[in-house]
Each structure stands twice: as C-alpha cells, then as structure tokens.
Amino acid sequence: MIVSHKHRFIFVAIPKTGTHSVRHALRGHMGEEDMEQARLFVEKSFPIPEIARMGHGHISFAEVRPFLGEEAFQSYFKFAFVRNPFDRFVSYCAFATSREGSFDRDPKRVMRHFLFTAPPMNHIIFRPQHLFVTDQGGSLQADMLGKVEEMQASYDAIAARIGVPTTALDHANRSRRGDYRDYYDQELIDGVAKIYARDLALFGYDY
C-alpha cells in the first residue's frame, strides 16, 4: 500500500496484479510525509504499529481506513489494479510451488490441490480481490480500478488523475507462462468460478 498526502491518493496493492511495477513508478513522486508498506524488493513499513505488524504490504481499504480519518479517506483518490481471477489463480499456483517446481511438472494436480483438497483461504495471495477494495457491507471503495490486462493504459489514466507524469511500467516479478486457458479443464473452471464468484461479477471478468 501507498498513502500519499502530497498527491492525496491511496493505492491498495492487491497481490499478483503487477503491484511492484506500479509501486516503482509511484515512488519517485512521493513526498516526505507519504507512507508505503512493502516486503518484496523493498522493505518499508507504515509508521502505524497496527499496520506495520501485519508484515506485508497488501493492506485493504477497510484495514487502513480507521487510521487515516474519515475526511482523508473520503477525499483521497483511491485506486487498485485487478486481474482476471482465472489468470491470477494460475499465477498463485506457480508462485506457491515455485521452490519445488511441482506446478511446472503437473499444473492441474497443483490447481486441484489448492481448489479442492486444501484451499489456503487465509493466505494473503489466495484471498479474493474484492476483499481488498470493498467495505464490510461489500460496497466498492475504490474510485478507479485499473486492469492488469491493460496495465499501461490504466496506469496512464491513474497518473493523470493524481497529477503525476506517467512512465513506462517495468515488468518486475513477471512470469513467462503462456495463456492461462491452457491450464484448465471444466472441473477447474468451475472450481475457480465458485471461489472467486464475487471477483468475477464485481470486476466484469469471465473465463
């Protein structure tokens, strides 16, 4: 997450949505009083103990809201990036098994494990995307949602909105896999559609 008092924005970094590229682009425009919390590539923590103790940078709007005050939260421009849940789930499976390489050897077995045998519902990267950008009642809190599928155009629009020059995004932590649809059969499609049903509906994605 980044909270910029200088440019009056809140950026929620949903896992597996190109957040490192966006963070890198935004850092050059941050003021002295701005805050960032991150753990990969750069170690930064909010000067708010309750947030710093979370130990990761994927903080939701709902989690940060009590510490910013209602005036700031309501008036600051709030944005995030989202990704097709079918594509994001493939990315999660590859990431979660990267050390042993099991996804490369048998991707469908790994996908079935995480969908049906032992869904890691408490893992921050597995968590549905809508939980980062909605309130307790399920209402969307973001003013703008960029999409990974049109990353540069989305960032250009966001940069214009917050009043900073745009820049070409880098590709930090990018994978080299092919089309996500190459990894699915109908059972897996149905499994992802069930777990991430709210993401699919809220963000306008399908298989």
Rank of each mutant, 00 (worst) to 15 (best):
I59N: 01
F103Y: 10
V42Q: 07
I158S: 00
A153P: 11
P15H: 03
D104W: 07
D190F: 04
A160E: 05
S139F: 08
F114R: 05
H113C: 09
K44V: 14
D170L: 09
P165L: 01
I124F: 12
R83S: 00
E32C: 14
Y196H: 02
E32Q: 13
E100S: 13
V82C: 04
S154H: 05
F81M: 06
V110T: 06
N173P: 02
A80V: 02
K78I: 04
I59D: 01
G28R: 15
E33I: 13
D104A: 05
T17H: 03
I2T: 05
R177D: 01
G28F: 09
Y183S: 00
G146Q: 06
E50H: 13
A52I: 14
A159G: 10
F67C: 12
Q129S: 05
V82A: 04
A52E: 13
H29E: 15
Y92D: 00
S102K: 13
E33G: 06
R23Y: 10
P66C: 07
F79S: 06
T19Y: 00
S102F: 15
K147W: 04
A172L: 14
R99D: 10
Y92C: 03
R177C: 01
E150H: 13
T166A: 08
N84Q: 15
K16Y: 00
V64K: 04
K147Q: 11
F89T: 00
N173Q: 09
P47V: 12
Y76W: 14
F81T: 01
L115F: 08
L202E: 11
L188I: 10
K16N: 00
E71M: 11
E187D: 09
K147A: 08
D104Q: 12
H123W: 14
G137F: 09
D143I: 06
F86H: 05
K108W: 07
N122D: 09
F11Y: 11
R83W: 02
R161P: 02
Q186W: 08
P85Q: 09
A172H: 08
R112L: 11
M121P: 15
A38P: 07
Q186R: 12
F95N: 09
A96G: 06
L169R: 00
R174V: 14
R99S: 13
R65F: 03
F79N: 03
E149K: 07
D170Q: 13
K108I: 08
L188W: 04
D156F: 00
L202D: 12
D170N: 11
I51V: 14
S98R: 14
H113N: 10
D170T: 13
I59H: 02
L200Q: 01
Y180P: 00
N173I: 02
H24F: 09
S91R: 01
C93T: 03
F73P: 00
F116N: 10
D135V: 12
R127I: 03
D87H: 12
E187N: 06
R109M: 15
R65H: 08
F61P: 03
N122K: 12
G28H: 11
G101L: 05
F77L: 13
R23T: 10
A160W: 12
I51D: 05
R83E: 03
S175A: 13
H58E: 12
R109I: 07
K78G: 04
N173W: 03
E100W: 08
